[in-house]
Structures are given as C-alpha cells and as structure tokens.
Design a protein around this nucleic acid. Structure first.
Length: 599
RNA sequence: GGGGGCGUAGCUCAAUUGGUUAGAGCGCCGGCUUGUCACGCCGGAGGUUGCGGGUUCGAGUCCCGUCGUCCUCGCCA
C-alpha cells in the first residue's frame, strides 16, 4: 500500500478511534484558515471529517493554506477528540463530529481549478447533508462529474444500487433466471420511434435498439425459461419529459403457465421487499386494485395519485336541470359535467387565483371551469343565478358540500372532462399541500380492466391500447369482432403516487385468437407476418400460456429518492433535447465513418 | 410541431412605470484572525444584461427575430 492510501473513509472515524494514526483521502469540502491553524473538511462519499493543520509543521501548513475547494488530498494524522480546555467541542451536525484528525503529513493528490459552481455540501441536523443553492441544471449537466460529488446525488445512486440488488436477490429467491437479450435487433414498426443503427456489412440495412425486450422475452417463454427477468436498457426516440428519458432502465419480467394473479403475487412480494430494504417502509398487501374506468371517472387519470382524496363526482344529471348554457351545451352534444369538492378551500382562492384554476383546465384542453363557493344558505358564484335552490340542494348532497367548500365544475366531452379535472385535481392537491412531497408516504395500486382497443379517429381504425399480443379477458373474447370497444384486456399497470411505474399483460398464446386480434386491428396476415413473423412462428411451436410485466426502474428510483426529476436518479442523463451536455452527444462523425457504413 | 416559464458578475439572485456610474450574497484575489465547522472582520478584482435588429432624447426593462434551457400538450403499442 502506498503511503498516501487511506486507512479509513471520511465517514468512519468515531470516539473509539481516538489516538489512532490514520490516513484519509478525499476532496476539500470547505476550509477555514487562521495564522497558525487551518481547518479542512475532507469529503468522500461516506461523509465529512474535519482535519486540523497546525503551523508548527510549516511544510504541510504552507500546502494546506494554499489548498482550495475540491482539491484532492491525502492526510495522515492522529485522531483526537474535539476538546478545548477540557470542554467538549463536538459538532453534532457531523457523524464524525466527536473527533478530528491532526495532520502530520499532507499530500496534494490533485489540484482543482475554481469550480464553475459550488459543489460543497452543507451538514444539516441529524447528520444528513443538504445542497447549496443549485446552479442551473444545464451547467451542472455539463460538469456532471462535479455535480455527482454532491452527497444527495451520491446517496440517490447508492439507493439505485440497492434497488437493483434487492430485485436480484428477491427474484432469484423466487426462482427467476436473469437472462440477457440483444441490443441490436430488428425494427418493429408498432410503438415508439426506434433508434436505428446502420449495418456496415449489409449496407443500407439497419438494426434497431430495443424499445423493450418484449418479443425476446416471449420467445424465451416458448423456449421453456419459465421465470425470466432482466434489468434492461430500453431506448425510445420520443420527446422527453420530467419523468421520461430516451434511455431508461426497466425490470423486465416474464413467466409461463400464469394468469394475472400469479404476476401480481410475484411483483407484490418484490415491492414489499424493495420498500422494506431500501426505505424501511412497510407496504401492506394485497395492493389495492382500481378499474381503469373507475380511475378515469374518480380521478381523471389512469395513474391517479392516491395520497389524497379530491375525488371527481359526476353531476351531469343535476346539471341537465339547469339553464346554464355551458352545462347544457356540453350535455346536449353527449358530454359530461363533473365536479371536484375542494374541502374548506373557498377562502383560499381569490378571484384571480380562481381564474388561474380555469387556466389550468384550459392548458389541459378544456374551456375552463366554473366555480362555486359554498356558504351556509347559498352559493357565492358567478353562475349562482343559473342554479335554482333545489339544484343547489342536490349539488350539496351529491358533492357532500359544506359551508366553506369550493366546488369546481368542468363541462365538456368526457375525455376532456377527465383530462381537465384530473389535471385540476393534481394542481389543487399541490397548492393546497394535501400531501408531503418529502414524506415516506407511498400509495401503490394496480390499475386493471383496460380496454383492449382504442379508436384511432385519425386513421379510422382500432389500435391496440397496450400491444397487439395482449390477451383479452376470457369472457370478452366473443365480443372481439362485434364490439371491439367493449373488450377489456388482461393488462395491468402498477402506479405509485401518481406515476405509472410498471405495466404488463397476459399474452395471447393461441394462434387463432392472435389472428382474430390482428384482424380487428386491420392488420393482414401478410403485414403481421412481415412485422412479427419470427414471434408468430415461435408461438406456433408449442407456446406456453405466459405473461409478464415491466417496471420502470428510473421511476421507482424517483419514488424512493422522492424527486420529481428523472435526471436526479440517472448518473449521466440527457437533457430535454436528448443531448448529453457533458460529452456533447449526439455529434457529427467523420465522413470516413459514414462512408464505411455506406451512408 | 403547439403553449408557457426562465436567460443580468464564476454561481444564486436584485434593479420602482423606460431615466444618473447595473447592485447584494456566495465564490475568487490580498490582508487580519488558535477553535472554526456554510468561521469571522477589512479591502480588491470581476458585467457586450444570451445573441441580432427595432422603437425612443434615453432600453436590463418595450417590440420583432434568433439561440439555449426547463415545464407541458401532441407523441411515448
């Protein structure tokens, strides 16, 4: 071992180490200097330790005085208690705050220019570390190696490691095999836009990077690997969001000889394990189950945040009795009128703030929203004159409204009402602080009974809601041709606090059902063959009944780290334009490279 | 592709209704300071207000364009 190499980490030393000669390696977090004494807080990913350098060792004192933030040092010295004149001077904000290291040797392992933004970590009460005022995210992404030094990010990435570890342990214990599938595959036109890779040896032809290992894992089932999982990278060339990256990691699972309940059992077992071992949070089983239609009605979303109420209530029948044109007009064209009761929120919104709520609905595609402030005797509202006393009574009853409540109405086509009130619901919960974004509060549920097909108005045809291999519910099979819109699928989503964190289905293993389904989708045998021929072939050769699920691990990491930004849980994320600001990718390449590829 | 927010010192932000020489904290540089711990005190350097154009006696502020970035709709089977 070289003499500069560490004997302990910067988070390790305690009173039990007092008197020992130790060597620490780390980055200068902060430094405080005097004429003949210097304090250096040395940081590594385990913590922070205070180092004292005194002037009676001039050769290292001079070095230490010169040192600045983010320099990399090796300090050899003796551990001593923080005592001045017999009085304890412990720093209770630091885990190592009982001791300090009196430097005897100091090696500058590397210098660092003044960083473009402040990296240092601020110790908080309870031995946690906080962040300085964060610089612009694009600057931090450009200098990601500095940003990643922040303990917050280091803890998050360590948590991701733990998440992966728990998954591997748990699924191994449940008898699963971790198998790998190719990155270079064949483009299958359904679904997201593919990232394409040109073939050098077959000029003009292309591989596609996987959107998911979907087809491979089904083929593994045909091949008899009845319990498969993979922590797989999935790539989709679509526009980004706060919770979407072009390159994400999913836990891909597939099982043979199963129905939905079997998948639920495996994933629920895993979920309990993950939350217990990552956060020490107990998740109660069985997880609640919501029907898709019910979720849309009550929450205006297929991935509702269940940490708060604010349920949507249909009042179409009551609204039909009013003379209010916005209500009547929507109803007469087949729309709906629905409402949210924001309990005791009437005095929390000024006229201007109510207008902003209407803006929220407009941004979600609606025309706005009507509001009513409930008073003891009557409604205070611009639309009060349209609401006769008996109607007000009915609304009070239906919405369980009491004096001080704020009622918000949206009238429109049903999907717009859902979208508008769903957006309004999450907005209200946020401004009314109905949940603690930093709390260990997890509401996890299954969403079931998705429609198999959705009508594509533009192309005037039915489209697969999940994917074309998703099995319909057994008792809906006879409706396949007569009423495609009424067919529900053996598909399921797993939702956590308003995020879709997983989704899967039982697949079709019967070739006859599969070809009926292609027919509904308006896909000829030839087209189906050309797109998925290899899978259809495989399914013919003795496919077991099978199904599975994929969990979005980046979103799980977001939940566990309690962030709403997916870039916080990925070491090297892309920005919204899918650029890597650190490496500069994507970038132009040599014409020589292009020529080799025949481009 | 559409809608919205932001862009001022290295960083985070301020700058009244368009009005003098664009300020503060942190960081940086120099000095002082044996017990600090996001140390403190004194002093200093540091600006093409993203870029281009326009309106005006006068633009960080208003208008047009453009670039960057974030949020969002479409999109993501």
């Amino acid at each position: 071992m070289s003499s500069w190499q560490r004997t302990h980490t910067c988070g390790e030393l305690r009173e039990t180490h007092i008197g020992q000669l130790v060597t620490l390696n780390g980055w200068i977090n902060t430094h405080r200097g005097y004429n003949d004494q210097l304090f250096l807080d040395l940081r590594d990913r385990y913590g922070i330790t205070q180092v004292v350098v005194e002037a009676d060792r001039p050769e290292i004192f001079k070095l230490a005085a010169e040192a600045r933030g983010e320099w990399v040092l090796s300090i050899k010295g003796r551990v001593r208690e923080r005592v001045i004149d017999g009085k304890q001077k412990h720093n209770t904000k630091l885990a190592t705050g009982a001791i300090e290291v009196l430097a005897e040797e100091l090696v500058v392992l590397n210098r660092c220019p003044t960083p473009p933004f402040e990296v240092f970590s601020v110790p908080q009460e309870g031995q946690a570390f906080g962040d300085p005022d964060l610089a612009n995210e694009d600057l931090r992404l450009q200098y990601r190696f500095l940003d990643l030094r922040r303990p917050t990010l280091q803890r998050t990435l360590a948590m991701r490691h733990r998440l992966n570890k728990v998954i591997r342990d748990n699924l191994d214990a449940q008898g699963f095999l971790e198998l790998e599938t190719p990155l270079l595959g064949r483009s299958t036109p359904e679904g997201a836009r593919d990232y394409l890779v040109p073939s050098r040896v077959s000029p003009g032809q292309w591989y596609a990077l996987p959107q998911s290992p979907q087809l491979y894992k089904q083929i593994l089932m045909v091949a008899g690997y009845d319990k498969y999982f993979q922590i797989a990278r999935c790539l989709r060339d679509e526009d980004l969001r706060a919770d979407r990256q072009p390159e994400v990691t999913q836990l891909d699972v597939e099982m043979s000889f199963v129905e939905m309940e079997d998948v639920f059992r495996v994933i629920e077992n895993l979920t309990v394990d993950v939350f217990r071992r990552c956060l020490n949070v107990e998740i109660k089983l069985p997880l609640p189950r919501l029907q898709y239609a019910d979720a849309m009605l009550k929450y205006g979303s297929d991935k509702p945040d269940l940490r708060y109420g604010l349920e949507i209530v249909d009042v179409s029948d009551i609204a039909a009795q009013t003379e209010f044109q916005a209500f009547r007009g929507s109803l007469e064209t087949g729309g709906k009128v629905r409402a949210i009761n924001a309990n005791a929120a009437a005095d929390k919104f000024s006229r201007k703030q109510l207008d902003e709520l209407a803006e929220v609905v407009k941004r979600a595609g609606g025309k706005g929203c009507a509001w009513v402030k409930v008073e003891a005797e009557k409604f205070a509202s611009g639309i009060e004159k349209f609401l006769a006393a008996p109607i007000q009574q009915q609304l009070r009853q239906r919405l369980d409204a009491k004096a001080g409540d704020l009622l918000l109405f949206v009238a429109d086509k049903e999907d717009i009402v859902c979208q508008g009130l769903g957006t309004l619901r999450t907005h209200l919960a946020s401004v009314l602080k109905l949940y603690d974004p930093n709390g260990l509060d997890y509401k996890i549920a299954w969403v079931l009974d998705f429609p198999s097909f959705i009508w594509d108005a533009e192309e005037q045809r039915w489209a697969a809601n999940h994917h074309p291999f998703t099995a319909p519910l057994d008792h809906d099979l006879d409706k396949l041709e007569s009423d495609p819109g009424g067919v529900k699928a053996k598909a399921y989503d797993l939702i956590i606090n308003g995020y879709e964190c997983g989704g899967g289905s039982i697949r079709i293993h019967n070739p006859e059902v599969q070809s009926r389904l292609f027919k509904v989708l308006g896909m000829s045998e030839e087209v189906a063959r050309s797109r998925f021929g290899f899978l259809l072939d495989a399914l013919k050769f003795g496919a077991p009944p099978h199904g599975g699920i994929a969990l979005g691990l980046d979103r799980w990491a977001m939940m566990i780290a309690r962030t709403t930004n997916i870039r916080d849980v990925i070491a090297f994320p892309k920005n919204q334009k899918a650029r890597d600001l650190m490496t500069g990718a994507p970038a132009a390449v040599d014409t020589k490279q292009l020529k080799e590829l025949g481009l």
